Simulated scan of single mutants.
Amino acid sequence: MYKVTLIPGDGIGPEVAKAMTKVVETSGVKIEWEEVNAGETVMEEFETPLPKHVIDTIKKNKIAIKGPITTPIGKGFKSVNVTLRQELDLYVNLRPIKSFKGIKSRYENVDLVIVRENTEDLYAGIEHKLGNYGAESIKIITKDASERIVDFACNYVKDNKRNKLTAVHKANIMKLTDGLFLDVFREVSSKHDINYDDLIVDAAAMNLVLNPEKYDVMVMPNLYGDILSDLGAGLVGGLGIIPGANIGKDYAVFEAVHGSAPQIAGQNKANPTALIQSAVMMLRYLEEYECADKIEKALGEVFLKGEKLTLDLGGSASTTEFADEVCKYILNS
């Protein structure tokens, strides 16, 4: 029996979280969910979108999965997602970008993984005003953070029998910061028995649109990872199907990376695929490979059959109907 912190989140979060837990439980894995919440729904009670007890619960269980969380805009609060990553030192953001047959897209056979450094770069949040003239944001790249993210990416390539690791950077312009990242990448990668190369970020954006099937595992600083992972989601059907994981030495938080979609909240219309796929990643992290494979295979069969797809995928099924269809295929596997 595993104990996992469940953070349903805001908007459609509770609906997709309910669908996800049903699918996970149907796969046969035994999980005790410890439910807490963060975001706008707790602001009035705790005067913060991220109460201390939420972080304490994750530290206790060491693993969490969360739905979309809204950080109030213009009220001085730091992003809940960024705060969680920094508080728990979740230095890896892992985003698999994979095509499913049955989901309409301009591309087929996309199967790439973005490994994003998660704790520094411009997301360190060090900014200040320059009088009335302007503002300045400081980009931080350190050797230690670069070494551990590249080492993680190298091991991911080997452990998952991938073909190549590509570093994404802008070292031709930012010679000190991105130059450091690139130097570390080359040094660390050379110590691993893998194929590796590097690519300037603007060329990476173009090439991912032209020939995404040519790329495998890509490692990069925080900002580029944020942008290119969303670009990658657009290649295979959108953020509604893409999972995400934030992984550190001691803790891991799995998440749907899409927004809270308040305009359809409570209407049972949301697509729960992103959170279900994040749960698949979580189960593999827990080494529950058989249950993870069951869910992934069932998702593929639901997409291929195309009879119970949600509105965003061109169907008319509700969140509940989609989850029930996935569960049906799991039970028949």
Rank of each mutant, 00 (worst) to 15 (best):
E136W: 08
K139F: 13
P243C: 00
S229M: 02
E147A: 13
E117W: 07
T57I: 06
L286K: 10
Y251W: 01
V24D: 02
H53Y: 11
N118C: 08
S318C: 07
N37R: 00
V201Y: 00
K249F: 09
I73P: 07
V36Y: 10
K75Q: 15
W33S: 06
Y2W: 14
W33C: 10
N332E: 11
N222C: 10
E301H: 15
T41N: 13
L90R: 03
S99R: 01
P49C: 00
I173W: 10
E321G: 11
V16R: 05
E307D: 13
E108C: 02
V157Y: 05
Y251I: 03
M206R: 08
M281Q: 09
A292G: 01
G232Y: 01
Y224T: 03
I149S: 06
K75Y: 12
A171M: 13
F322R: 11
S318V: 06
A323D: 09
A245P: 05
E15C: 04
A38R: 07
A279E: 04
I63T: 15
N61D: 14
Y107K: 13
L275Y: 01
K18R: 12
E325K: 14
F254C: 01
V253R: 01
V280F: 02
G244E: 02
D324H: 10
K75L: 14
Y289W: 12
I65A: 00
G225L: 05
G74P: 08
D324V: 12
Y133C: 14
V36T: 12
D144F: 15
P51D: 03
G9N: 01
L286P: 09
T319K: 07
F46Q: 00
E287S: 14
K78V: 04
G259S: 05
M218N: 04
S278K: 02
N118E: 09
Q267S: 11
D197Y: 13
T142D: 13
I194G: 05
V302D: 03
V54Y: 05
K129R: 14
K22M: 10
K328W: 13
M282N: 00
K75H: 13
T21H: 09
H192D: 08
G13V: 08
C154M: 06
V253E: 00
E127T: 11
C291Y: 14
E287T: 10
N160E: 04
V115Y: 04
L231I: 07
E25T: 07
M218E: 03
L309S: 09
F322W: 12
G131E: 06
Y156F: 13
A203R: 13
